[in-house]
């Protein structure tokens, strides 16, 4: 665009400088809380306890003691394993069901298309609430199982609509030949739609994946047994409820008071780094998803 090459006036320069300053400040505000936590997690426990104010590097002597303690906690390792199960299981199952439903709802030949779309859209604006859901979960016998974590939120109507919007844009000409050859709808889904839809599948997998990674309150409501809890629930205990047994199993009280803070920061880093490492590489999928979603409102 040649508009960029045009001569800048003084006003333009001032505007540019202000914009850059604001943007840099904003970026720092976004990053610093996590950086602070990272520095704190490698700091000496005693030094950290006696320090108030900003950190620009870990406090010496550097240590990984906090990480050692955090990982030695059985509850944490169980919860990481649970999170892996929930993220992989929930995402795989959810994407599969969503994909099939979105495909069906994009078919003009499906008679109940309009009716089922309406039925799904209504759920985006009106819900029975947590109490009736709790009664249902108990009633169908999945209370206090892993299914109680996954099933009540296995599909998101929003993701379904995004995926359907994408499927509707697939040119009909592609499948006409297949229909003439006698292919079933199932074959068309697997052989034509899935290969064409890698980008949108990536978007939906990301949405579900991050959603499951962040979920916790299903456990609070439906899973009294803490052996089923995901990482986020243990984090909640560690960070907010201040339940000591969540952080450490066998440590003397004196040492505990020093290290408890340190372990908090380490647990945050353990729970945050995986997703922060991945997101710069996958954010373009999210942006794409947000845009498809925006078109449909």
């Amino acid at each position: 665009m040649d508009i960029m090459k045009r001569h800048k006036s003084v006003g333009d320069w001032i505007a540019d400088i202000i914009i850059i300053a604001v943007m840099v400040a904003l970026s720092l505000i976004c990053v610093y809380p996590i950086l602070f936590t990272l520095f704190a997690s490698f700091s000496d426990a005693k030094a950290l306890l006696n320090r108030t104010g900003l950190l620009f590097a870990p406090l010496q002597p550097y240590t990984v003691e906090g990480y050692r303690l955090a990982f030695s906690n059985v509850k944490l390792s169980t919860s990481i394993w649970n999170t892996v199960i929930y993220v992989i299981g929930g995402t795989a199952l959810g994407t599969f069901i969503t994909g099939m439903a979105a495909f069906v709802l994009s078919r003009k030949s499906f008679l109940l298309r309009g009716f089922i779309m309406k039925m799904i859209t209504v759920t985006m604006f009106f819900s029975g609430g947590i109490i009736p859901l709790f009664i249902i979960v108990r009633g169908i016998g999945i209370y206090n199982t892993r299914w109680a974590f996954l099933l009540p939120w296995i599909i998101s109507a929003y993701n379904l609509i995004i995926m359907r919007t994408f499927f509707e844009s697939v040119p009909a000409a592609l499948e006409e030949a297949a229909y003439l050859d006698g292919a079933t709808d199932l074959q068309i889904f697997f052989r034509i739609y899935i290969p064409l839809s890698k980008a949108i599948i990536a978007v939906i997998v990301m949405y579900y994946g991050v959603g499951w990674w962040n979920s916790w309150y299903q456990s609070l409501v439906f899973q009294p047994d803490n052996k089923l809890w995901p990482l986020q629930m243990i984090l909640r205990e560690t960070l907010i409820s201040n339940d000591r047994s969540a952080t450490m199993d066998v440590t003397s009280m004196a040492e505990e008071s020093y290290t408890r803070e340190l372990v908090k920061y380490c647990t945050v880093i353990i729970a945050t780094v995986p997703i922060l490492v991945i997101y710069p590489f996958v954010q373009k999928h999210f942006v794409k998803g947000a845009m498809i979603g925006a078109v449909k409102g």
């Binding site: 069901i97 499906f110 109940l112 039925m119 819900s127 029975g128 009736p132 859901l133 249902i136 889904f189």
Partner: peptide
């Protein structure tokens, strides 16, 4: 193919609405 999704919305959205 639509059955699992419809079952989901009935069980976890419409039954609670009745609830």
């Amino acid at each position: 193919m639509i059955l699992p999704a419809v079952a989901y919305f009935i069980i976890f959205h419409y039954l609670p609405m009745y609830g």
